[in-house]
Write a protein that binds this DNA or RNA. Structure first.
Lengths: 223, 223
DNA sequence: GTCTATATGACGATAGAC
DNA sequence: GTCTATCGTCATATAGAC
């Protein structure tokens, strides 16, 4: 099964957002440019980071998962911290890319729905990477954390701008705009915590649900 | 400043929910029955678990935070894991208690708003405990995790039942009911990840915001 | 580029004096 | 109940053979 198919009908606002979001998520392989061994290491690391967390993951876990000895890991990465940074950086860049691409749509309402759909669905579909991105942020070293923070802030700003546009081009820092932006980001992020493919939801289903719920939040506050 | 005061007006649905929720949150000290030393250990452990995570926390951190040697910790707890369980168990029980108390309100719409308000606000106000509860769940040993899972499931069930009641006494397992229940729990839980007292929100403000946004989600799906 | 073997240090937990 | 001292283990990272 291709992960980027849309399960339900594409009619209606949510359906159109689902179709547009599915396009943005197509061919999601963050590691295709890495040499095979480095790629195997990263994949094994993500699995263990997502399962156990960065600090509970040992080099022996990563080595076993990638079929190497712990010593061989150092040929491809300078430290365990560097592996985390590579995963976190690319994951954050991907999330930002999704949000940015969705925000480019027209009209603003469609951009908003596509953004919520794609962001939520990505956190379900790529939940192992997303867990590392969202929950191992604090495990990054100070300078790595700073670099990643730039990507996080950019993502948040775009979401606020899209919401502000939906509200008719108001100030993106207005409290009601910030409130909706915080909520939709929060809903999407938390998917990585609770989602499991064996549960009642599909990634597409989550995307559609949150797309629908988020749209209902779009009532400007009486300011 | 007392943490249980309500910042804004208590008129309107959200204001009444805020007032009712503030009562449920009053006097929130989970450790008042512990002997002073055990209490100091737990408090130091929570701070470190919330900051660094369970696995990155060493006994030396906890010892330093509580003004003891590592050896003295063993007089009060059998292991590091036991400290985590104590924190997690009480925290989960508190969250369940809040949700249960809110759910007892009438009418269902008021119960729902109070629940969302209290749950979100608790995750902001008690964000260190809440982080341990929500993000160190996987670090618990198998049998401890099982005990805590019972509390988590009970919390989820109550939220679904309240939403089902708001929808007119429908089946709590109906997808649209589950969807709203998942979303409001998710919004509340994620507050513990991003909230900081130095940010633009107060715990009361978060509670009110999510109370408002959650209410807007309450449109039964066309089933 | 991969391996085995190992250096160095920190970990959780314990022993035994006070 | 607290301490200092330490045990046994496993962590990250390196050395050097192939």
């Amino acid at each position: 099964m291709r992960m980027t198919e849309v399960d339900g009908p594409v009619t209606g606002d949510a359906g159109r957002a689902a179709a547009a979001g599915a396009v943005l998520l197509a061919g999601d392989d963050l590691w295709s440019d890495l040499p095979p061994t480095a790629r195997a290491i990263v994949v094994a690391a993500i699995d263990s980071f997502a399962d156990r967390g960065f600090h509970a993951t040992t080099l022996r876990h990563i080595a076993a998962g990638s079929g190497l000895s712990t010593a061989a890991l150092y040929v491809h990465f300078r430290s365990k911290d560097d592996v985390l940074f590579e995963v976190s950086r690319r994951g954050h860049a991907r999330a930002l890319g999704l949000v940015r691409a969705a925000a480019a749509g027209e009209p603003a309402g469609h951009a908003f729905r596509t953004l919520v759909y794609a962001f939520s669905r990505w956190h379900a579909e790529q939940r192992t990477v997303a867990r590392v991105v969202q929950y191992e942020f604090a495990a990054l070293g100070p300078e790595h954390r700073e670099q990643v923070t730039v990507l996080r802030r950019a993502t948040e700003r775009i979401v606020r701008e899209v919401v502000a546009e939906v509200f008719g081009g108001v100030d993106p820092e207005r409290p009601d705009v910030r409130g909706v932006a915080t909520a939709v980001l929060s809903l999407g992020v938390d998917v990585a915590r609770w989602f499991t493919p064996s549960g009642p939801y599909t990634p597409d289903g989550i995307g559609r649900l949150y797309c629908e719920l988020a749209e209902r939040m779009l009532v400007p506050a009486r300011v």
